[in-house]
Amino acid sequence: MKKYNFYTLLLFCAVSVIVLSASRNYQSLKYKRTDSKFLQDTVKQVAWLAPASADSLKNPLTVSQESISKGEELYNMYCFSCHGDTGYGDGPAGGSMGIRPANFHDQRVIKQKDGALFWKLTNGKGNMPPFKEALTEEQRWQLIVFLRELGKTE
């Protein structure tokens, strides 16, 4: 009977050591994920650059109330859920993506040429879907017109 208790106690101790060891590893992993440096790394975004050839693309549309209005309709249909009502990248769906969607008021976006924005809108990357199949070329240019107007407002 004593032999049985000894082995039971030994088995219990071995299992406890394994559980505590796994628990400690889990805790350290958990700590690393909430560590401020880790969070900074997840928020840090790598610049998304269009190819240089995209800069040569010119918007064939003139800025008019009609092109702005059509671009706004498209924005509200396809873009606002991620980029937000006012284009700050704070839409309800955008926050859950890990990488924050573009802020159209940011100078890094404003300084990009229309062709670069058109290329990005057409091809997409990561969580940003490509719109070459969903939108016509004219609709994509209308969106660019609206994004430019949106970026002018505070």
Rank of each mutant, 00 (worst) to 15 (best):
D55L: 14
K3G: 12
K113A: 03
N123P: 02
T122M: 14
L57K: 09
L39W: 06
H83G: 02
K58H: 05
F6R: 06
V43I: 12
S81D: 13
M97Q: 10
Q107G: 05
G95H: 00
L20V: 06
I144H: 04
T136I: 05
P101G: 01
V19W: 03
E154N: 13
T86Q: 13
D85G: 11
Y26A: 08
P130E: 05
M97T: 10
G95W: 00
L10M: 08
A14W: 01
K111M: 07
T62L: 15
Y78P: 05
N127D: 15
K30M: 11
Y7M: 00
S67E: 07
G91H: 00
D106E: 02
G126Y: 06
I18Y: 03
S67W: 08
D55C: 08
V17Y: 08
V17D: 09
D106G: 02
W119I: 00
F146I: 12
D90G: 03
V109F: 01
W48H: 09
T62K: 15
V15T: 07
V17L: 13
S64A: 09
Y26M: 09
S67A: 06
R148C: 10
S28L: 15
T136K: 10
I99L: 14
M1I: 14
H83W: 00
N76T: 10
A102M: 06
P60I: 06
S56M: 08
I99P: 06
V46P: 09
T62H: 11
A54C: 01
G95D: 04
L49F: 01
W48G: 12
F104Q: 04
A102C: 05
E149S: 15
V43N: 11
K2Q: 14
S16Y: 05
L74M: 05
N25I: 08
A52C: 09
L57Y: 11
S96V: 10
Q139H: 04
C82R: 02
K111F: 03
I68Y: 02
R108H: 10
V15I: 10
T86P: 02
F80I: 11
G98Y: 03
T62E: 11
S36E: 03
F146Q: 14
L49Y: 01
M1A: 12
Q112D: 08
P130C: 02
Q139T: 01
F12S: 12
F131E: 08
F38G: 08
S96L: 15
I68W: 01
K37L: 09
L150D: 04
T42R: 11
L74I: 09
A54Y: 02
K132F: 15
N25E: 11
G94F: 00
K32I: 15
D55G: 15
V15E: 06
D55Q: 14
D90F: 00
F12R: 13
P92F: 05
L20R: 04
N5F: 04
G98E: 06
I99M: 14
K30G: 07
L147E: 07
Q112G: 04
S96T: 11
D106Y: 06
A22D: 10
F131Q: 13
I68C: 09
I68P: 05
P51C: 07
W48P: 06
Y78M: 13
